[in-house]
């Protein structure tokens, strides 16, 4: 097979070694993503990441602002600090 002569084990090993360096470099530069959490009751209508409830078909489909049964992804640790007209966000679904 001709491809085997182009791509040798040494080529692959060299590429993998370079790749490992690139990955650790980007991790050191803060390339890792911050964790997120599901936050209920903070989403504006149509802006939800997912909706739990009758009459909706999930992401982007909520019909009411700040619906307590509907969540949006927010940076981890910030959910309960988000202020809405109905109080702060909740990590659990809120019955309205």
């Amino acid at each position: 097979m001709t491809t085997k002569t182009e791509i040798t084990a040494a080529t692959l090993a060299g590429a993998l070694a370079t790749a490992l360096t690139l990955v650790s470099a980007s991790a050191e530069m803060g390339g890792e993503k911050a964790d997120k959490e599901k936050c209920y009751g903070v989403s504006l209508k149509g802006q939800n990441d997912c909706a739990a409830g009758a009459g909706t078909s999930c992401a982007g489909s909520s019909k009411v602002d700040y619906d307590g049964s509907i969540w949006k992804y927010v940076p981890k640790g910030t959910c309960t600090t988000i202020k809405t007209p109905n109080g702060v966000g909740s990590l659990k679904a809120v019955k309205s």
Partner: peptide
């Protein structure tokens, strides 16, 4: 570039 693409696969 295989190295860049392997790195992208992981990161």
């Amino acid at each position: 570039d295989l190295a860049v693409n392997l790195a992208a696969l992981f990161s």
